[in-house]
Design a protein around this nucleic acid. Structure first.
Lengths: 225, 225
DNA sequence: ACCTGAACACCGTTCAAGT
DNA sequence: ACCTGAACACCGTTCAAGT
């Protein structure tokens, strides 16, 4: 039987709700990273056992999806100088999305496998589609185009996962750089000739080119048939 | 002390080598899927303890990378009718790469995080660069272009992971379809208008358009500066 | 020198049993 | 009816100790 004191020692344990669980999960992620947001740790943070979470979430994938849906609400959908042209504004929105995922690359990885479908995701789609329409992109091309645009942004962020201490990331880069440099002119003449170009550019330069390339392609490519 | 009989009962336990470990890992993956290729199960298959693997592999990520490098050797680099134009041939090679990863989407997911750098990857790069050169794509655009082309292929395959029984995949699709259908014309007019287009097309139609779009973009987009 | 048993520190998920 | 303790069936990685 709990004494009045013990009741006062900490705030009353709040009733579990899906929303509350996701709130705590987001907070936990921001403190310790997604890899630490396990069912067990999350349950611990909520002062209950892991089994209780399964009343509100089917599994870990659904938890990650819920976290992403929540985070998507933070994307600034109007993040560009007023009066800027549609490409600039689209670029700004996409940059916001990509930046969000870059802060949690492991989340980007799971976003690829489980596309979100929440309210915030719809709002993001809406803005992107509106900007493409403003740019005169035909409907079907715009619809299929947002898919590629979001896919690159997500994939680019996901590429930064699995780098716990950056040490391994640099090691990997060095490995690739070495492999490219070692490419023999006999066996891999094109790789040899373009070894420098393959790794050139800053992330931001390459990102800019990637978006331009995609938009140019989307603008001029009609689905066949 | 092992008797001669016990020695004859099974083939002599072969000495561990990195190559042999990866062979066994690939076989195990083909039988049970990548999620079953854990350090512990792999060790078991090799009739040793997990600690022994760490003599040859730094960690699980490196194991996955080694598996991918090995699999890349199976991509048919000349998979197109002789005399076909460069776009057709490039498409065929990319389809081979994507198909390989589609058979093991979890591997695609880890391929995003840890780009390969082995001999087979270089050979793939070489062929793609050669085809882009044949198509008259300027060097820098070709170099940055292969990156996007491989990224979409990898990401598209990765999107099919986390679907243990396909049940959940369909559920997710239904959810998105529902969300799009529910989009109000007031709040999300563009989503509403394009709800059909957003989900239209077969995987193969969309893949075709995606590659076309990328190639068109790559052909006409010069890096700025 | 090379290899590994055993331990450390965790996981996701289920279900019988409790309130 | 709702919730959860405890168990089941696993993980990756390390390191002291063996050969």
């Amino acid at each position: 039987m709990p004494t009045p004191q013990s009741r006062r020692e900490r705030p009353a344990k709040p009733a579990l709700t899906r929303e509350g669980i996701v709130d705590t999960a987001v907070a936990l992620m921001e403190e310790e990273g997604l890899q630490r947001v396990t069912m067990r740790r999350l349950a611990q943070a909520l002062d209950t056992g892991p089994a209780s979470l399964y009343v509100y979430l089917a599994n870990t994938a659904e938890l990650h999806g819920a976290i992403l849906d929540r985070l998507l609400g933070r994307v600034d959908l109007d993040a560009a100088p007023a009066g800027a042209d549609w490409r600039t504004r689209l670029d700004a929105v996409l940059a916001g999305y990509e930046g969000l995922l870059l802060a949690h690359p492991a989340l980007a990885q799971s976003a690829l496998a489980a596309r979100p479908s929440g309210e915030n995701y719809l709002a993001l789609l809406e803005v992107l589609l509106a900007l493409l329409a403003e740019g005169g992109v035909p409907g079907l091309q715009a619809a299929w185009g947002v898919d590629i645009l979001l896919q690159t942004a997500t994939a680019t962020a996901a590429e930064h996962s699995a780098h716990p201490e950056d040490t391994r990331a640099e090691q990997e880069w060095a490995q690739l750089r070495q492999a490219l440099a070692d490419a023999s002119a006999d066996e891999h003449p094109h790789v040899r000739a373009l070894a420098g170009s393959l790794l050139s550019g800053t992330p931001s330069t390459r990102r800019q080119w990637r978006i331009d390339t995609l938009l140019n392609g989307i603008l001029i490519t009609r689905p066949e048939g």
